[in-house]
Simulated scan of single mutants.
Amino acid sequence: MDNSGQEVSSFSIVSGKGGVGKTNLALNLGYALHKASHQVILMDCDLGLANLDVLLGLAPDKNLQDLLMGNASVEEIVVPIESPNFDFLPSASGVPELIDLDEDLQNSIFDKLKSVMDQYDFLLMDIGAGISKTVLRFASLSKERIVVISPEPTSLTDSYALIKVLSTEYNIRSFRIVVNQVESLEDGKMSFARLNSACKRFLNLELSYLGAVRTDPAVPTAVIRQVPLLKYAPSSKAGKDILALAVKLKRIREKQLEEHFSQENS
């Protein structure tokens, strides 16, 4: 969903492998942007294995499956997280048919969502891990891609594979990297440098470093309590790191709006 003609700034949040904290990061970035007075909608694009609702402690009556089947309108499936305008689009869990949606069905989802998107500044798409066709298509539909990695070698190799497929098959050249679960911010820079080096050497691709989030005991506690970390412990190490990332997302949006405005007036 290219936003060149829209107000909403879309970010797909992806990872090469599971277990790197991608969904938790998506939730807390949304919360941080909401607290900065932005209108934010979180979309659970991990079709078939949805878990954003679990992190939020919610049990939505309707989800994207109902929207696709024509059993519910967009307005009926949007779930408020906090007022005003911090909302959530839930997906289904345990529905194998949703895991590998074809292109027409994915486009159908976004066509149906257009009616509400102009209410928001940010669309954050929490996309499943790996390189399935559904993951790749969703990632290609957003204006920006945030690839979440951890310092583990398997995370680096799987993220490289994801970036390689998106760049070679979808001609995507812009990737912003967040290194999660690091012992220090310096470790984050080192992990990014290793991934960036491989992408420059083999893909002729320069990655963009968004930042790192430190390992923090407050994170699993917030997950168990089913509240966003930034609500439970905003001054924690990880909380401060996520707030710094949110500031960068705001700057990216400002730049997008400037470019859009200059194009309209050229």
Rank of each mutant, 00 (worst) to 15 (best):
K62T: 14
V78F: 04
S12L: 07
V219S: 01
V148S: 03
I13T: 03
A193T: 07
E103F: 06
V54Y: 12
D111W: 08
V95M: 06
E258V: 07
S9L: 13
V247G: 05
K35M: 11
L245H: 02
N204L: 11
S235E: 15
L123P: 06
L210H: 04
S132A: 05
G57V: 02
S115K: 14
A92L: 04
E76M: 06
L205P: 02
L56V: 03
G21P: 00
A233N: 09
L68W: 01
E264A: 15
F138N: 07
S197L: 14
M69C: 13
A36K: 14
E152K: 05
N171Y: 05
L123T: 01
A26Q: 05
I13K: 02
L230M: 12
I41C: 08
N51D: 09
V74K: 01
S91D: 10
G57M: 04
N63E: 10
R201F: 13
F261V: 15
L25C: 03
E254C: 09
Y120T: 04
L64Q: 01
S73F: 01
S83T: 03
I127S: 01
S236D: 04
L113S: 07
F261W: 12
A59D: 12
L162R: 04
I149D: 00
L101N: 03
L29D: 00
S174I: 13
E206V: 11
K114C: 11
S197G: 10
S150G: 08
S167I: 12
G48Y: 01
N51H: 03
E259W: 12
F175Y: 12
A26W: 10
S184H: 15
A129V: 00
I81V: 14
D111C: 04
E186Q: 15
E97P: 04
A233H: 02
D46C: 03
D53S: 10
L205Q: 11
N196P: 06
I81K: 00
A244L: 12
K189S: 06
S191P: 01
P217A: 07
V79Q: 10
S266I: 09
D104M: 08
L27A: 08
P151D: 05
S12F: 06
V8S: 00
I172G: 10
H38Q: 13
R253W: 01
Q181C: 08
L68Y: 02
D241V: 05
G211E: 03
D126K: 08
V74R: 09
D46L: 02
E206L: 05
E183A: 12
S37D: 13
I172Q: 10
I77N: 03
V213M: 08
E264N: 13
L207E: 02
S184Y: 13
Y232F: 13
T134K: 03
P90D: 06
L249K: 02
P234E: 08
A26F: 14
V78H: 11
Q39P: 01
S93T: 12
R176W: 07
I109F: 00
I177V: 06
R201N: 08
A139D: 14
